[in-house]
Computed example of a mutant assay.
Amino acid sequence: MTSDDRGTASTVPDGDDGPRSSRVRNKKRKHLPLWQETILLLGLALVLAVGIKALLVQAFYIPSESMEPGLIRNDRILVEKVSYWFGGEPQRGDVVVFKDPGGWLTESESAGPANPVAKAMAAIGLYPEGGHLVKRVVGVAGDTITCCDDQGRISVNGEPLDEDAYIKEQGTPCNGPMVSNCNWEAGPVPEGHVFVMGDNRGRSADSTVHLCRPDQTDCVPGDEFVPVDLVVGKVFVLLWPADRFDLVGRPEAFADVPDGS
């Protein structure tokens, strides 16, 4: 036997009989019981759901008819949060979900799900929550919104908006009638705030309703603007009902609006 032969023969360590020993070790490994695996998988799913809700996507529902015709009461929508990371803020035309700034919703509208299971699902982002509103951003910081021109159009920084593609046709003389007339102005919008309106202009308790009118004595100037800090995210999908599934984007109407002051 040569020295090379001896070297080859001694490559298997003492106490290890090769492949047979590996098979024995594999047989000794035990899988977790089914109930433990189930708990582990549920725990991982819960962590993922909470993480997704906190950072990426959250489910909501449309609480009223204010966003018709595009979004109807009880539609289920998905809101993404990534667009507003790292200093990003809502843009004109975005449909956003935001927390009630205070007094915008009735008690019933603010109530979340009553069912305990639904409450638990809402807590982790798998079921819509209450206490939020869905509106379209019409003005951002520095913008002045005026209602209306001789064609009944709202103007932003002097640029009339062609909103026929998304607002509800309702036979009103202008596109901002919730304050009972077509002659009002809002802004400039303060830094860190937005001015919002529903697409169903005759049935939307939005920023226009909170404008101070000349005959009001209990109105607080500035309540018409929504703090950006209260904005949860941007609606990007109409998820349910399935036959109305659609992507929700930013309309072209705002493309030519100049910067505000």
Rank of each mutant, 00 (worst) to 15 (best):
residue 199 D to P: 09
residue 194 V to Q: 04
residue 250 R to S: 14
residue 252 E to P: 00
residue 61 Y to R: 08
residue 20 R to I: 14
residue 150 D to W: 10
residue 238 L to H: 13
residue 150 D to T: 14
residue 235 V to A: 09
residue 194 V to D: 04
residue 157 N to F: 12
residue 25 R to F: 06
residue 253 A to G: 09
residue 15 G to P: 08
residue 222 G to Q: 05
residue 56 L to P: 01
residue 75 D to Y: 01
residue 182 C to D: 09
residue 188 P to S: 02
residue 206 D to V: 10
residue 200 N to V: 11
residue 5 D to M: 06
residue 163 E to H: 02
residue 84 Y to N: 08
residue 49 A to G: 10
residue 3 S to T: 14
residue 14 D to N: 13
residue 164 D to C: 04
residue 84 Y to S: 05
residue 131 G to L: 08
residue 13 P to F: 05
residue 129 E to Q: 08
residue 131 G to F: 10
residue 74 N to D: 15
residue 12 V to M: 14
residue 13 P to V: 07
residue 164 D to M: 08
residue 73 R to N: 00
residue 93 G to R: 13
residue 182 C to H: 02
residue 246 D to A: 15
residue 77 I to Q: 01
residue 169 E to N: 13
residue 48 L to K: 00
residue 151 Q to I: 00
residue 120 A to P: 03
residue 239 L to Q: 10
residue 120 A to M: 03
residue 219 C to A: 11
residue 179 V to F: 03
residue 255 A to L: 01
residue 219 C to F: 05
residue 230 L to Q: 01
residue 187 G to H: 03
residue 93 G to V: 12
residue 89 E to Y: 06
residue 147 C to I: 07
residue 62 I to E: 03
residue 28 K to P: 00
residue 229 D to W: 06
residue 97 V to Q: 02
residue 40 L to W: 06
residue 146 T to C: 00
residue 250 R to H: 08
residue 41 L to G: 05
residue 110 S to Y: 04
residue 206 D to C: 12
residue 20 R to Y: 06
residue 162 D to E: 15
residue 71 L to W: 00
residue 5 D to A: 11
residue 205 A to P: 01
residue 230 L to Y: 06
residue 26 N to K: 13
residue 131 G to D: 04
residue 147 C to L: 15
residue 21 S to L: 03
residue 153 R to W: 12
residue 204 S to I: 10
residue 130 G to S: 10
residue 242 A to D: 07
residue 113 P to N: 13
residue 199 D to H: 02
residue 33 P to C: 03
residue 68 E to M: 08
residue 148 C to W: 08
residue 36 Q to V: 15
residue 209 V to W: 01
